[in-house]
Amino acid sequence: MEALIALSIGVLTACGVYLALRGRTFPMVLGLTFLSYAVNLFLFSMGRLGIGQPPVIRAAATAYADPVPQALVLTAIVIGFAMTAFVIVLALKARAELGNDHVDGLDES
């Protein structure tokens, strides 16, 4: 499972970085979204991976899952949502103001 999670985080980050470096706003927004997914998954896995472990104290439990990363990742998801919404609106505004969807507004075609 560790290898799978690590691989997915790696692929998401790679896609995110590639897309974020594109010259148009739409792929860039997608790239940032991928990047934030990767980061959220990474943050989530920092509490160590385990199956069927309770996060709160229980008499029968032998091992516990760390609840803190789940709280952290929830916060990060909410903030990421807000930021994505904002950057989409900004990209639309830039499209309207600059007349094209290039990040530098340079496109002449």
Binding site: A20, T25, M28, L32, F86, V87, L90, A91, K93, A94, E97, L98, V103, D104, G105
Partner: peptide
């Protein structure tokens, strides 16, 4: 808007 877009990203 252009400078702001760079700043935000």
């Amino acid at each position: 808007v252009r400078a702001g877009l760079h700043y935000v990203v």
